[in-house]
Design a protein around this nucleic acid. Structure first.
Lengths: 216, 216
DNA sequence: AAAGAAAATGAACATTGTTCATTTTTCCAA
DNA sequence: TTGGAAAAATGAACAATGTTCATTTTCTTT
């Protein structure tokens, strides 16, 4: 009894520790990758860079991630946890119309503050290609974030706003507005296009967005 | 006199022909590049592919273009000539509000019909990086297209629309709306995000956009 | 302490953008 | 017509990158 019990406990214990250590290393790789992406851009960050920065070999990275797209997808998911968390906090705001406005601001700030993460989440094909590669055609994080918008817009409608509008397309239009501003700004399409006051154009356009919301 | 005249004529003639031939080959390279980009995507098209498809060597491509970014920028410019031309045709529509609506439709159709060209024009960093590389911080084609929008929106204001709105930020907001829809659709962000009727979401959202324009 | 399992390694490969010395072609003058 | 210079075209070679996998190292259990 004793003879069997002790070894088995040790085995299970180390097995669990191993699992934890593996998760820790996986997290370490992601943390390093994210840091490099933010610092020097996704396109300029190589697997070697990531491995070097945490003093592991290239091969080790490939033990924990099948390819670069899986790393990008994992960070893509992290980004949605971050942004989604910030959006969910806004349910503190009881008036749905005010909440909707606040959501727009949070979304824009996230995009402009973390452009590389934003690109990963909403522009780059890589994380989507990973989903296709593993035959998963669901995008859970995107779903969740869009649900937050849909729920809020629905409450706006219930409160008498958006008369004559369809919920789903209107939500997508609002999302497109916010995304479009972030995307054009991040992609440097505002800088050289002869737009006046280009540095503040997103903030100014957001004000126009608010004016329109106020009459809907 | 005669002795000098004849050779000089020959020289100038062949010189001009040479110039023309160089331009033709440059155009041929761009045509091949564009074809491959549209067929298999920009990321999947290599310089070797382009060279092979027109039976020239890799080196020749580099005689005519300093690097891949220059090719991307040249096609980026072509795209703006195309789209800009389609937009300018709409000045046939005299009512500025109707013209604005039509411009949105043309823009969206272009984006959805030629997603790779659209990415090149409004999303990818490469053509912008080329501008930076050659120390040019003007983006003539972008300017011209935005001018078309600005002019039309200004006429809308003069006709009594958009009261209380600022021209420049409102134009950017409208552009962002259209761009956002194209960008999310092209980037496959609508497909798996639990959006109902995802195939038609852009068209449906455009209808919501029209409803809003009608009250502004 | 030894054997077996798990983890880490980095050399090696394929692909890409890019360069540049060399070759081929074109052109003009004698 | 032809020789040589100018122009154009070439493709071998290089550096960087993602990726694989046979080998080495480390850890775990008995």
């Amino acid at each position: 009894m004793f003879i069997f019990f002790v070894p088995e406990t040790n085995y299970m214990g180390s097995k669990e520790r191993k699992t934890r250590e593996k998760e820790e290393l996986k997290a370490l790789i992601l943390k390093a990758a994210r840091k490099l992406f933010v610092e020097k851009g996704i396109g300029q960050t190589t697997i070697r860079n990531i491995a070097d920065s945490i003093d592991y070999s290239i091969g080790t990275v490939y033990v924990y991630f099948r390819d670069k797209n899986e790393i990008l997808h994992a960070l893509h998911t992290q980004g949605f946890v971050d942004l989604g968390g910030q959006l969910k906090v806004l349910f503190n705001v009881t008036d749905p119309m005010e909440r909707l406005k606040a959501m727009g601001k949070v979304y824009i700030n996230y995009g402009l503050d973390y452009p590389e993460m934003y690109d990963l989440m909403f522009t780059l094909k890589a994380p989507i290609e990973f989903l296709e590669a593993i035959q998963k055609d669901e995008w859970d994080e995107g779903k969740a974030s869009f649900d937050v918008l849909r729920t809020t817009a629905k409450q706006c409608m219930d409160a008498g706003h958006f008369k004559g509008h369809k919920l789903e397309p209107l939500c997508f239009l609002i999302w497109s507005c916010m995304h479009g501003m972030c995307s054009l700004q991040i992609g440097s399409r505002t800088q050289n296009a002869n737009i006046k006051n280009a540095e503040n154009i997103v903030a100014d356009a957001y004000d126009e967005f608010l004016k329109i919301l106020n009459i809907l």
